[in-house]
Simulated scan of single mutants.
Amino acid sequence: GRDIAGLVEMGAITRVPGTATRNARYAITLPRQSQDSDRAQALFQSTDTDGRLYPANPSIRYDGPIVAADGWYAIQRVASQTFVAHSVQALDDSPQVGAVVSIHHGHIIAPERQETRGMNKKRKPTP
C-alpha cells in the first residue's frame, strides 16, 4: 500500500476512476511531450527515414551516423530503424551530419579516436 501511495504521490500512476478502495486499479501516467521533444520529432521527420525516435540517455554509449542536426538536437541512427535525439547543449562539440561517431556522457568520439581509447594492447593478426 505504501509503495502504491508513493507512486501516486510521484505522479507515476493514477487510480482509475470508478474503482473501489479494495479493488482499486491503477494506470501508468505517461509523461506529456514537451515542446523540446516536439522540436526533435520535427527534425527527425525532416529526414524522411522510417523508424522510431527516442531521447538519448547520457549514460549509455550510442554508436552510429548523425542523420540530422540543428541548433537544439542531433539525431543519431543506432540501429536499422532506431534513432536517438541528443541535446546539442549537452554535447561537448557540434556533431556533423553524416559523421559516424560514438556519443557517451556528452563526449563525441570519432572512429579514428576510438582505437586509441582503453588499453594499448597489441593484437595478434588474424589469419
Rank of each mutant, 00 (worst) to 15 (best):
Q76E: 05
T21I: 11
I60T: 14
I60V: 12
R117M: 14
L91H: 03
V8F: 00
I108M: 04
T47A: 05
R52E: 15
M119I: 15
A24R: 10
T19R: 00
L7P: 00
S80W: 09
F44L: 00
N23W: 07
N23K: 10
G1Y: 08
S34L: 10
A56V: 05
V88C: 04
I13S: 06
D63H: 08
R61W: 03
A27T: 06
R25C: 10
G11Y: 09
P65A: 15
T14W: 07
Q35S: 14
R2K: 12
G118D: 03
Y62Q: 01
R117W: 09
Y26L: 07
I66P: 04
V88P: 00
A56F: 03
A79Q: 04
A74W: 02
R117V: 07
L7R: 11
R77Q: 13
Y26N: 02
P111K: 07
Y54D: 11
I60A: 05
Q33K: 08
Y73V: 02
Q35W: 07
H86Q: 04
D36H: 09
S80T: 14
I75C: 01
R39L: 11
A85F: 03
K121W: 13
H105R: 10
G11S: 01
I109N: 09
D92A: 07
A40D: 07
H105N: 14
R113D: 15
A99K: 03
E112W: 11
I103A: 05
I103N: 02
G118C: 02
